[in-house]
Design a protein around this nucleic acid. Structure first.
Lengths: 336, 336
DNA sequence: ATGAAAGCGCTAACAA
DNA sequence: TTGTTAGCGCTTTCAT
């Protein structure tokens, strides 16, 4: 069996309280006994049980990270940052993919609570605010990430979606484009991106002529293609010369479809995405995109979470960080 | 405070043993008390502490997954499968990114042991077999994933790397290519892929003329570009007409570099990758690749791990699964 | 500076 | 069928 604190104590000829003290480096311990105990620990290859210490200290040192799908590059990249920040405080991450399924999310939340995680980061928008509401009632330290529930008094970190939509659009307009299309998904953040899009058009005294210039779909490459097919199927003087897709996957779908339809990106069509995932670099032409400041966002989120863990009654904050325009090869000026 | 088993027992007018029994659905309990207890649990919103039960049962229900980097799509995709299989047994995953750094890996292993995870999946090749060796000595249920340490008697799941290298190469040869290049990384599996490459050449009575046709580098897009630059910089009748890259990222680097150098893929150069990550679909032209059967591999790995958890002395097995050739648009016949 | 002892919230063997 | 009780391996007062 694994050695316990008792084994160490016996072998070192001290009490378990003493061992605990050198372990946690608190209380006053003479240098001599500290050395003695330490050497015994070494010798026995003692690995203190965090499950036992969690039982007494009420801290597990693990935090739960809920994402829609860890195989999605945006969330995988975010998870990596979270992991790194967690590690700094000696914590680790349990990762849960919800597939944006409320039942699955509920089951995972329940599991994480039974595991007594110190806190929760919810990067998976669930359609159901009730889930988060219950967490708040139970005073479970929680922060929403890259998604917010505005009517709920909860911690959240988001990119400024409205501004992101605005600058993406303003950029396309500045390149001379006047017929724009937007493809968004069905998440709350995307409503804001759409609003930014519309307001940017207004600033140029433009507006959307017809439905087909603004469509919502769930975020897959295939859906990007489908929508593009429809948008680009219009006659040449009606179809958009630039498309703003609310995430990179959709944008790449557009690029692929355009290429296959014989349109050259960016010569015949400019495309801009959102999220600036590693995919933006990989597709061809490389994708201009609106970057979420992931590193800062995760850092702020962890900070908020840690504060919330230290003081569950701390006032809740909603923090929004600025997006950044990343220009690559999928956008260019209009011909004339 | 959160309600405990005592609260439930008191409220239901029974002993904690009874509560425990209805909780775990064992022992004989009358229907009446079961109902009573259940309703009290419901009413109090009782969430049994898994840390307490872990302390007694010696099972935490969590398994550790060590990967080089969870932001790497190959491992993110694998993690997703692992998560799904873990969920079936009510477990969850702690994910650790090692960056292939032995110290970091060692620290994570230590952390996971202190957390008393039920088992470890190591998908992160560490240069140091000693780490795994120690786990084996401590009888920590462990399985190596997509990497093996051949001299160590340990569980492992791998794709048949040799065969993968062979069929990739045989495929290129069947297309008429005779001047081939290979770019591999510095992992053990890649040695096998190289061997498969060489043996396939032999079967056509070909061999490598010179060093430049076979280079090793670490697996990044940028490195793929660098190597491609060198390979393709040779005069036209010397440079390879097809390149086998030992993973998708390198392959995509090659494609990007070739395009920029004015070569058309696949007309002027065929490229094939390895791993068949989602990136293969996203790049342009889409990438032919050797698929690792991730779903099967993860399933087998979880099965091996579970057996190993149930019986730490179970005999160790090394399982190798067949790769599959996935043809997309980055490969084609030679002109003549 | 060190130790005794009382929990933390469960499980499981044994009694009743 | 139900309850008593002794752990599981720690932390933390409170004595000494």
């Amino acid at each position: 069996m694994k050695p316990t604190i008792y084994d160490v104590a016996r072998e070192a000829g001290v009490s378990i309280a003493t061992v605990s003290k050198v372990l946690n480096n608190n209380g006053r311990i003479s240098d001599k006994t500290r050395k003695k105990v330490s050497s015994v620990m070494e010798k026995l290859n003692y690995q203190p049980s965090m499950v036992a210490s969690a039982l007494t200290s009420q801290r597990t040192g693990t935090i739960g990270l809920m994402v829609p799908d860890i195989a999605n590059p945006f969330f995988a990249e975010a998870a990596r940052f979270f992991e790194d920040y967690a590690q700094q405080t000696g914590s680790d991450l349990i990762i849960c993919s919800t597939d944006r399924d409320d039942d699955k999310a509920a089951r995972y939340i329940s599991l994480l609570q039974r595991k007594r995680v110190d806190g929760l980061i919810i990067a998976s928008h669930t359609g159901n605010p009730e889930l988060v509401h219950r967490l708040l009632e139970d005073k479970v330290p929680t922060v929403l990430f890259s998604a917010d529930i505005r009517l709920l008094e909860c911690n959240s970190i988001t990119v400024d979606d409205y501004k992101g939509g605005y600058i993406a659009t303003a950029y396309l307009l500045s390149l001379g484009h006047r017929r724009l299309g937007i493809i968004s998904d069905n998440l709350p953040g995307s409503r804001l991106r759409e609003q930014g899009f519309i307001d940017a058009l207004k600033a140029y005294e433009l507006s959307l002529d017809h439905q087909d210039q603004m469509v919502q779909t769930s975020a897959t490459l295939e859906n990007g293609r489908k929508v593009a097919r429809r948008m680009l199927g219009q006659q040449a003087d009606k179809r958009p010369t630039a498309i703003f897709a609310c995430n990179d996957l959709l944008a790449i779908g557009v690029i692929k479809e355009a290429s296959e339809a014989g349109l050259s990106v960016p010569r015949d069509l400019s495309v801009i995405g959102f999220d600036n995932t590693m995919l933006a670099d990989i597709c061809h032409p490389s994708l201009s995109s609106i970057a979420q400041p992931l590193r800062d966002m995760t850092e702020q989120a962890m900070q908020l979470l840690n504060e919330s863990i230290d003081n569950p009654d701390a006032i809740k904050r909603k923090i929004s960080l600025p997006p950044e325009l990343i220009i690559r090869d999928s956008t260019s000026k209009t011909p004339e």
